[in-house]
Write a protein that binds this DNA or RNA. Structure first.
Lengths: 208, 208
DNA sequence: AAGTTAATCTTGACACCGTTCAAATAGCGG
DNA sequence: CCGCTATTTGAACGGTGTCAAGATTAACTT
């Protein structure tokens, strides 16, 4: 008899058919990138993972349960993107973080869609987003650096939320094709994002 | 034989089955308010209008075509809401308009959802929104009143877009249940909206 | 006024979706 | 080796968007 051949642990399918849960999430992300959010059906994910339509139900309660897993990973990636931008900017300004946020959304539009569709269906963004390494936490620190008094917790949180809202709004709308003329006039979407972000981060007068 | 009985003209179904197109839109809006956006299927709309599942296809190319009609009406109503708020505020500040915007979104969550789902699938918001009486036009005027130089068209538009983005972001996120503790601490969602809006309209320092 | 045309609506079908459930299968502990 | 449990399948149900073909009715033409 052959003893089990020594295989790369990455190739091992430890269970029945492998580590589905993970495989399903990966398959879903693949579909998301390739065909967009409206093509992301449970059956399509199962198909992509090479498994029957009912199989996912042993790893996810629901379709929305799968979506939530994807969304959570998305928010984590978003946090990483922001962190990366902060690390590259010695001043670690809100503006920098905002631009990183919007660019992440633009580079992963389908994922970003799932992230906020889930947030709306759930109670909001995943808890981890507000935790130690999460994106929201980074915003808090930047706000404090920008001069917001951290002893007034409510005020600080309000500033963070309002900033996050603005970034989200920009992220959802930069893609509107109706802005294309303006984008061309400015010389590219990156410039457009910069211009919007600097206005969001700094109002021209106090009586707006 | 009976001649047709004299009927109230309101009961008359002038066409085959009545003025469908309009009836379908109304039925859809009814479903939207009653059961939310995920219950809005073409078949359900047809059912609500008392008509066969295929009937809508003679008035709308698609399901999305119906949705677009609803979205367009929604953006018009949003413009009216903003206009109303401006009329009631002698100073006609951006802050006032922003609050009106967000409150409209919160009072018509399902409609608001359809509005932006369509905008994303289309090229953006309906053209009428930017026209003479549209909501975007009102923002432009308010921006000019707030001191933005109207001779720099690009700059003016950028200010308007950034403001609209912020309002949209707030509108989408105030509903997150995870903010409930903070809302309670502030004494209600209205107050929460005010606080966010004033921060969005007025940054604390220029180096945010 | 009658007959033709064109618009409107229905019926029935197709493919796909989310979800469930009983049966089959495979790995695991004894 | 046997049974146990987790995993997967297959088939089914009700629902969806969409389309083609036929029936019905309004409108137009002469």
């Amino acid at each position: 008899m052959n003893k089990p051949v020594a295989v790369d642990p990455a190739d091992v399918r430890p269970y029945h058919h492998g580590d589905l849960r993970r495989a399903l999430i990966l398959a879903a992300e693949r579909i998301l990138e390739r065909e967009g959010p409206q093509a992301l059906s449970l059956r399509a994910v199962a198909r992509e993972a090479g498994v029957s339509p009912a199989a996912p139900y042993h790893h996810f309660k629901d379709k929305s349960d799968l979506l939530n897993a994807i969304a959570e990973a998305g928010f984590e990636a978003l946090g990483e993107a922001i962190k990366g931008a902060v690390a590259a900017d010695t001043e670690a300004k809100m503006h920098t973080m905002g631009v990183a946020y919007v660019k992440f959304a633009r580079e992963n539009p389908a994922l970003y869609r799932v992230m906020y569709d889930c947030s709306r269906a759930q109670d909001g963004m995943p808890d981890k987003t507000h935790g130690e390494g999460g994106g929201f936490h980074l915003v808090e620190q930047a706000m404090i650096r920008a001069g917001i008094d951290p002893s007034n917790q409510v005020d600080l949180k309000l500033w963070c939320i309002s900033a996050w809202c603005s970034a989200h709004g920009v992220a959802e709308m930069v893609g509107f094709a109706q802005f294309k003329p303006m984008i061309d006039e400015l010389g590219g979407e990156d410039r457009f994002i910069e211009e919007l972000m600097s206005r969001v981060c700094h109002s021209p007068s106090s009586d707006l």
